[in-house]
Structures are given as structure tokens and as C-alpha cells.
């Protein structure tokens, strides 16, 4: 008999959501301040910061929600996050000139203790761990 999906927002999942919530808040707030005060200095980096912040918000909502819709949202957001940190991380390692100002994903999240690199892997593992089977 197939086992239904378990809530991603239960047990250790709550710790994951707390970390995602912190990143959603800090990345979004930082990007908004950067865009409001010095957008012309590095528009690409600041827009990227904002995208990252929104992705963290969506991941937090998806992981905290219940049902297949929330789970799909979480998969998409955490998957995008993994691609984002890997692509932006690699680009910033290869050529720092194109990203004059730090984003949350620069150099694989070095400015944030590399948590942005580890987080999506844990997120994907948790989604897989709690899925229906």
C-alpha cells in the first residue's frame, strides 16, 4: 500500500523553514535597500539579489504549506535556488568583474558562511524524504 506524503512543515522540517525564512527576510530586505539607494552601481547584481530573495520567500511558503500545490512550489523554488547558487557561484569565481557587488549567491554564498550552497541540497533531500511512496 502506498504511503502518502508527509508534511514538510513538521518535525525537523520546521528548522529548515526557519532557516529559509531568515534567508527570505535578509536577502529580500538587503536587495530592496540596494535597489532603493544605489541601483545604478550594479543593477544586475541587485536584481539578482532580489530574485534570490523572492525564491527564498517562495521556498519558505512552499515548505511551510500543505498539499501537492505547496510541495510543487517548494520543489520548483528549491530547484531554482540550487541552479542559481551553482550558476552565480561559478560565474563569480570565474569572473568577478561582472558582479561588482555581492549577492547572496556570489562565490557559492561565501558571504553567508556557504549556507546558501548547502541549504538547497538539504531542501531537496527533505522534499524527497517526505514524499509519497
Amino acid at each position: 500500500m502506498p504511503e502518502p506524503a508527509r508534511a514538510t512543515s513538521s518535525g525537523p522540517g520546521r528548522v529548515l523553514i526557519a532557516v529559509y525564512g531568515v534567508f527570505a527576510l535578509s536577502a529580500t530586505a538587503r536587495a530592496l535597500v540596494q535597489i532603493a539607494t544605489k541601483f545604478h552601481e550594479a543593477p544586475l547584481a541587485f536584481l539578482l539579489s532580489l530574485v534570490a530573495g523572492i525564491v527564498y520567500i517562495l521556498a519558505t511558503i512552499g515548505l511551510n504549506g500543505r498539499g501537492p500545490g505547496a510541495r510543487r512550489l517548494a520543489w520548483a523554488a528549491v530547484g531554482f535556488e540550487l541552479a542559481g547558487v551553482l550558476i552565480v557561484g561559478t560565474l563569480t569565481v570565474l569572473d568577478a568583474a561582472d558582479f561588482p557587488d555581492d549577492t547572496v549567491w556570489s562565490v557559492y554564498g561565501r558571504g553567508y558562511g556557504f549556507v546558501p550552497l548547502v541549504l538547497p541540497f538539504i531542501g531537496l533531500w527533505w522534499l524527497r524524504h517526505t514524499r509519497a511512496r
Binding site: S10, G11, P12, R14, V15, I17, A18, V19, G21, V22, L25, S26, A29
Partner: peptide
């Protein structure tokens, strides 16, 4: 942020009283 995070984290931590609540507060 320095004032708001801890109450929100504590609220979230105690909404489901499991062992993981403590770590949620630690994250906050």
C-alpha cells in the same frame, strides 16, 4: 530585524511542540 526575529521564531517553534522547537529558536 534584531527585535522581531526572536518572537516570530519562538511563535513558530512552539506552534508544534516537538524536540525541534529548540533548534528553531536557536536559528532565530
Amino acid at each position: 530585524v534584531s527585535v522581531c526575529v526572536l518572537p516570530i521564531a519562538t511563535q513558530f517553534a512552539t506552534a508544534e511542540p516537538t524536540r525541534w522547537g529548540g533548534t528553531v529558536i536557536a536559528v532565530g
